[in-house]
Design a protein around this nucleic acid. Sequence first.
RNA 1: GCCCCGAUAGCCCAAUGGCAGAGGCAGACGACUUAAAAUCGUCACAGUGUGGGUUCGAGUCCCACUCGGGGCACCA
Length: 821
Amino acid sequence: MQEEYNTRAIQDKWLPVWDDLKPFDSSKKDDTRPTKYVLDMFPYPSGDLHMGHAEAYALGDVIARYWSQRGYNVMHPIGWDAFGLPAENAAIKRGLDPKAWTYENIAQQKASMRRYACSFDWDRVLETCNPSYYQWNQWLFLEFYKRGLAYRKNSNVNWCPSCQTVLANEQVVQGLCERCDSSVTKKSLTQWYFKVTDYADRLLDDLDGLEGKWPSKVLSMQRNWIGRSQGANIDFAIEGMDKSVSVFTTRPDTLYGATFMVLAADSELAQELAASAPDVTRAEFEKYLDEVKKANDIERLATDRKKTGIFLGHYAVNPINDERLPIWVSDYVLADYGTGAIMAVPAHDDRDIEFAKAMDLEIKMVVDTGEADPAETGIATSGDGVIVNSGPLDGLNKTDAIARAIEIVEEKGTGKGAKNFRLRDWLISRQRYWGTPIPIIHCEKCGEVPVPSDQLPVELPDSKGLDLQPKGTSPLGAASEWLNVSCPSCSGPAKRDSDTMDTFVDSSWYFLRFLNPNSDEVPFSQEEAKKWAPVDQYVGGVTHAILHLLYARFFTKVLHDIGMVDFEEPFTRLLNQGMVLMNGSAMSKSRGNLVRLSDQLDIHGVDAIRLTMAFAGPPEDDIDWADVSPAASAKFLARAWRIAQDVKSNPGIDVTAGDAGVRKSTHQFLKGFQEAIETHKFNVGVAKAMELTNHLRKAIDQGPGPSDPAVREGAEELAKALSLFAPYASEDMWHLLGHEASVALAGFRDADPALLTESTVMAIVQVNGKLRDKFEVDVSITEDQLRALAMASVQVQKTLQGLEISNVIIRAPKLVNIATK
RNA sequence: GCCCCGAUAGCCCAAUGGCAGAGGCAGACGACUUAAAAUCGUCACAGUGUGGGUUCGAGUCCCACUCGGGGCACCA
């Protein structure tokens, strides 16, 4: 009896079957298959899954299911990045408990993932807000602390006045808080840091090894972010003081062209020099500093901003030629980059010449680039050239002059070659409730005391009775029972550190926790790590190109140095899927273009949505939901499903007796499909499945008919291939074809090479690259035979009339190109 | 300002330097039907953003530009 393809019915039919079968269990003891670790970036539980999740998990699932079909034991776990501000803000807004809110969302997302038929191993699950997870954040923090990689310092930090918390450099985007878009200000606070800068060189250099495996975009973003500059640190003695101005410069070759010094207005040295300046100068300085502090980043970054500054009345001495250089302060020099001071070479630096012009300072050319003298034109020349007016450096090119200048200052003991990074240490403490408590106790007598490991975890106290409103200090400071403890060292009165960790700490190592998510003995098993890690394929959004990926790379390198893992990069391959847009822009409630995933699933079914995500285009491109047709995906699945229903032969029939043409289609498909999936051209893979479906339809209706064994072979391979995109439809097809569940474990076969070779091929004849004739020839045709055939062609003869042949290119058996003079 | 990515049919997208079209959407026509939907089938539509170059041959490689998207940016 012919039945209709019924999306809902087959979803309801197969879900419970899979629950029993657990096709994606990766923990079987006797499993001898080779391993693959495929990981999707774990979600933040801020509501139900949305279209973006649907895309990411559809694509990650294609990869996981593909390797599973290829005979690998695939670990494909999932968890929740469950700490963070949204839970806390929701709690404040609606008077809920952050924990209850979070776990409700997790339950909802988990149910949606199950319905979405993600091939997750449900025995490997974690939530970062669970003490069994975050105890290891604390344990790792203390390991870092032991090694000097976690430390506290006072500094001018990024402060979000709206979130009432500090932010890491990476969380400030264009001067705004990445979470709430408030203008970020500076505040002097004592905070905890991880010493990422110790790893700056390795984090940069090791990106080379990821070339071709990570998107080049991400590699370049990380390189930009780390921002290494080569140059020198040079000391300029301050006249009349036992002090010097130390500067970092990438252009020591222009040392003779320095005509003044500039200090960051908010640097300590500027304060000191102002203190010893005349009263008038000091007052001017204080006024200027006030203005600088008031200016926010947006104003400060404006490129057409006029140069301002104050002369401090002091002079520094150029170590290379003993010239006197006036010392200025200005806001165009940043306190927290390099040494917070520069030597200004206005002739060869755009910013310095602007300042020199504004303050009427000397401009001295020391590099002849062939352009006009900057002192005349007021335009700095920053290109390469010949060094002039520079004593021992005269006549050298830039590279040699840099090397020579460094030698000279090193000989004099007033400087040395150096490199500098844009990257800063990672500020990890947050003045909020919903995060991992920092496992440090502050004792009046003993100072900072680590919580002994047998006292971990330091559990978060219940939120009940705590005021979670942002107020600039941690809500935990008010949990007095929790806060007040006796010092582990001297037993005297002491207080816990009341800050919590940045949630990026949680996600920096979670991929290792999946190896043994429930262990209370170790953060992760080193034996399991040897078996599975690093992650073979990581899938997630490009939004994490800098933050999360940099931090995870940093953690991995530290864990390597501690001896806990034997690799230095966490994610061997990375796929960044694009975003799902609607009518050209990101979906949002306020824009009114929100497409609800649950609605789409109700209307079109899970399979159609997953297939649409894979078919829309290259995975890294954005999908505009207005451009795609889930209804068409559903239609195709019905068409494929009917193929399986129409097959009349029995399972296990000898397919070699089948129609040769149909077999050829199937095996060409096998080859093309696997190539497409392995190169992540999922859209092409789907197109090939559609092509096979069209061939099989024709074979059934107008060819050898539904009983031909080759039709069965094609239908079975089609079902297996579709299992990557459409788990429900393909499982039902498999069932219609007389097989037991699950099609997901049926296993792909390789194409039979014998069926791929053609005996004849279409040869084309070009004249000057333009097609003139084509004919079918035997694949074994010789060049001479092909030439003769081409020359004999009437079309070719006609074209060649009156022309003289200069060259004949022959690529037997497919092509002849006749070039004329 | 510096760096990266992209531009192929009305639309989304394919195409190891070798016939511009694999697949889909939308469209036209036909078969089936009393009719419609569904289904099955057939067909049409671009010379690859612009201008140069390399090559026997360029959508593909190189150079310049235009447009779109993204990253970094008073970083010394």
